[in-house]
């Protein structure tokens, strides 16, 4: 029996992405390298024989997924479960959490300019974000971060698949730096005629 067939069987039977180290557990002869080699072989095979599915790298693992061009046919089956799309506000909050994690609710709301309790709850219920710790400061606020399901939902392999912060004009990465500070007033204390709205 070929390594590739074992790997294929595991991928076929799984309904979530599996990392190479997990797939390797299928047999003592397998290790991460041989799993990767088997995946490469299977990919070539699928491409060659023009299969309707392919092995996709998602959330640090591999998963068998249908190719996008078959979506119109599958769309006709309203019984096929598929994830529902997120609302605009949910995507906003998720974008903030993804870049700034770990981050608390108050900070999220300050960046969005609107209350976000419900939206965060929705993201939690869908397993896309989770509480990852508590912050310093008053009340030790809950801090949120993204989960592996977040990567799965968007088809990302890792958080690095998000647009690189360097490619974004400013700020998302740097919480409290003002790009427009007058040269002589470097203090971030908010003293002076600063239009500072305190979070919360």
């Amino acid at each position: 029996m070929r390594d590739a067939q074992i790997v294929e069987a595991v991928l076929f039977a799984s309904d979530a992405p599996l990392g190479p180290e997990e797939i390797a557990r299928a047999d003592d002869t397998l290790d991460e390298d041989s799993v990767e080699a088997a995946v490469r072989a299977l990919r070539a095979e699928y491409l060659e024989s023009d299969r309707a599915f392919e092995i996709v790298r998602i959330a640090g693992g591999y998963q068998l997924l249908t190719r996008p061009e078959y979506a119109p046919y599958l769309d006709r089956f309203d019984t096929i479960p598929r994830p529902t799309r997120l609302s605009g506000p949910a995507l906003e909050a998720l974008a903030i959490i993804a870049y700034r994690q770990p981050i608390g609710r108050v900070e999220i709301e300050y960046i969005r300019g609107v209350g976000s309790t419900g939206v965060i709850r929705t993201l939690q219920d869908r397993g896309l974000v989770a509480v990852v710790g508590r912050g310093e400061g008053i009340g030790r606020p809950l801090l949120y971060g993204t989960t592996p399901q977040f990567l799965e939902h968007f088809g990302f392999d890792s958080i690095d698949d998000l647009p690189r912060p360097e490619t974004l004009p400013v700020i998302l990465k740097e919480p409290s730096e003002s790009a427009f500070r007058a040269e002589d007033s470097q203090s971030a204390s908010g003293a002076g005629p600063v239009a500072r709205i305190s979070p919360g």
């Binding site: 076929f12 309904d15 979530a16 996709v56 998963q63 068998l64 997924l65 249908t66 190719r67 996008p68 979506a71 599958l74 096929i80 479960p81 598929r82 994830p83 799309r85 997120l86 605009g88 995507l91 906003e92 998720l94 974008a95 903030i96 993804a98 870049y99 960046i111 969005r112 939902h153 968007f154 088809g155 990302f156 698949d161 998000l162 647009p163 974004l168 004009p169 400013v170 700020i171 998302l172």
Partner: peptide, 24 residues
């Protein structure tokens, strides 16, 4: 920036939804 990123998330989501896993 948040808007830019959430638009990118929106299209990543749309792409992902076009691929189906082996489902029940």
């Amino acid at each position: 920036q948040v808007r830019v990123v959430s638009h990118r998330l929106r299209s990543a989501e749309a792409e992902r939804i076009r691929r189906l896993a082996k489902g029940f």
